[in-house]
């Protein structure tokens, strides 16, 4: 049985359709990424799945419990951590753990056991009495994660979990998440960092309240399998965009950091017309090579096809 099943889940706020007939399943032990720009409906969906918000229509079960019927039952079975690592800054590391343990109704023995586990996981052994506000971002994030899984939930919701954290801490964090997933915990992550999405087993791209694409990372990238993407490195990318946009073999171009991604029409494999056009206009290209499409390519494409703009 899937850990999460969602069928035609819908939520309105007045006339505004925040989530529009969304359906998907998440398997036990899966790291499931929920991607989309702000306002795409990610938060509303997650709030419904956590039992905070009643669906307007449709159903969702989390750990076998219907979120509309028994939101409290859902809350007992899930862990939740938000981007703000909502800890109490004036409490010590240990007091935060004790508080959240109490909130989930852990008895003293279980709490002692889980406290040791959380301290170990967060790497905060020996710093039990440090005030949380004195912790650096990465430690705070791991402590928040520890507090969120004190009651050993089988399903963990992470709402943009790595905002404002340095890359090293981010990597450490994902190591922890992978370990949890290996032990059978389902992890449901929302993010708008595309590099973070690469850590997920499967991804759902949300746009305007709907799921615009769903699949594994490689499946989503395969959307581009039939089309080649050429990365052009040049000192004058803006001119290059204008020069290449109206070539017959080019579907579209987009700026990609300091480089230029040129998407050829299906069946087209030749880079020579690009080179000729650039040379003809006196634009110097340092390199011109085929690249694997990134998730960002997929995301941009999905959003464009859905008729919107990515934020």
């Amino acid at each position: 049985m899937p850990a999460v099943t969602v069928r035609d889940l819908t939520r309105r706020f007045g006339p505004f359709l925040a989530v529009d007939h969304v359906s998907f399943d998440v398997e036990q032990g899966e790291i499931f990424g929920f991607l989309g720009s702000n306002g795409a409906g990610k938060s509303t969906t997650i709030r419904m799945l956590c039992g905070l918000l009643k669906p307007s229509s449709g159903t969702a079960t989390v750990g076998g419990i219907d979120v509309g019927r028994d939101p409290e039952g859902v809350k007992r079975r899930i862990g939740y951590m938000s981007q703000r690592f909502s800890l109490y800054e004036l409490l010590t590391v240990e007091e935060n753990i004790t508080f959240f343990g109490g909130l989930y109704g852990l008895d003293d023995r279980t709490l002692a056991e889980r406290r040791a586990f959380a301290l170990d996981m967060a790497g905060l052994k020996g710093r039990e009495r440090t005030l949380t506000r004195d912790l650096a971002g990465g430690w705070r994030q791991r402590l928040a994660l520890g507090c969120a899984i004190l009651h050993e939930p089988r399903i963990l919701f992470l709402d943009e979990p790595t905002g404002g954290v340095d890359p090293v801490s981010r990597r450490q964090f994902w190591l922890l998440i992978n370990r949890l997933s290996e032990s059978g915990v389902t992890v449901f992550v929302t993010t708008h960092y595309l590099d973070e999405a690469e850590h997920c087993h499967r991804l759902a791209l949300m746009h305007s309240g709907r799921i615009a694409a769903l699949g594994t990372v490689s499946e989503l990238k395969n959307v581009f399998a039939k089309r080649a993407v050429v990365e052009v490195r040049t000192a004058s990318p803006m001119e290059a965009v204008r020069a290449l946009d109206d070539l017959p073999s080019v579907e579209k171009t987009s700026l990609f950091g300091t480089a230029l991604h040129v998407w050829l029409r299906p069946g087209q494999r030749a880079t020579e017309p690009l080179r000729e056009r650039l040379d003809g206009l006196g634009i110097h290209a340092e390199s011109l090579e085929f690249v694997q499409p990134s998730l960002e390519d997929v995301f941009m494409d999905v959003v464009e096809r859905a008729g919107g703009t990515a934020a």
Binding site: S86, L103, G105
Partner: peptide, 8 residues
């Protein structure tokens, strides 16, 4: 918000 996610 964090507390509201808890079963209390």
């Amino acid at each position: 918000e964090q507390v509201r996610m808890a079963p209390i």
